[in-house]
């Protein structure tokens, strides 16, 4: 039982001051000195902390998913920009572009695993592409194209039109690679998580700092 002071006289309330009221069907802590009675609801009080912990976990998970997707989108835009700017030098099979696309695929897979660990990894990867990576890349492209001159923009559109089949093939390969990688990453993440949980349980079992002074 958690320890608190009486709100009226300040006396410490402990487990001995707790009793169950059959009339109100509540646990009640009555101050042994002044008789001030309060409902004893540590579970309700801890509810806020539980919700906070879940929100924190969700925030971390979505933060990782969104950040990974944004970096992947940025890498894809950089690769696309390099190809559109100098199509002869940076062909789609150029090692730099392949490396950028591979990094984007890995990051999208990581984003998918963080986004929806309870869903099938391939589905999560597709959702990650559709909801996070592609819209972010579209926004980056849109913002970058504001600063481009009209001639440069027209030339980019022209190059884009010529390279469209190759770009579609490269993009499809990138999506397929991320879908293939996602289950592997999900399995690795699950293994790491189980390992941590196992170690946590072991540490708690042999802890001498247990609140009750005995192994839990």
């Amino acid at each position: 039982m958690l320890s608190h002071c009486c709100a009226r006289c300040g006396r410490n309330l402990d487990a001995s001051s707790r009793s169950f009221s059959a009339l109100a069907r509540l646990w009640v802590a009555a101050c042994p000195r002044c008789g001030f009675a309060v409902a004893w609801m540590p579970r309700r009080a801890r509810e806020g902390a539980r919700v906070w912990a879940r929100l924190r976990a969700l925030n971390i998970r979505l933060g990782i998913a969104f950040s990974a997707a944004q970096i992947a989108a940025l890498l894809l835009v950089v690769a696309l920009g390099m190809h559109l700017d100098r199509p002869q030098t940076f062909s789609l099979s150029h090692p730099t572009l392949v490396l950028l696309a591979a990094c984007a695929a890995i990051l999208t897979s990581a984003s998918a695993v963080a986004l929806a660990p309870a869903r099938p990894a391939a589905t999560a990867a597709l959702v990650s592409w559709a909801v996070l990576v592609v819209p972010t890349a579209a926004v980056i492209c849109a913002v970058l194209s504001i600063g481009m001159g009209r001639l440069q923009l027209a030339r980019s559109f022209e190059t884009l039109g010529k390279a469209a089949p190759n770009l579609l093939t490269a993009g499809t390969l990138c999506v397929v690679a991320s879908i293939a990688l996602a289950p592997i990453l999900a399995a690795a993440y699950e293994g790491v998580r189980r390992g941590h949980a196992r170690r946590d349980r072991a540490a708690k079992r042999f802890s001498i700092g247990s609140p009750l002074g005995v192994p839990t």
């Binding site: 009221s21 109100a24 001030f36 409902a39 609801m41 540590p42 009080a45």
Partner: peptide, 25 residues
Amino acid sequence: DAQTGLLFVRCGECGTASALFEYPT
């Protein structure tokens, strides 16, 4: 509550007792 001195009100809809004071608040 005569036994503990707890002040509470009963819900008019479901009859559940809600204490006027509770710990931890």
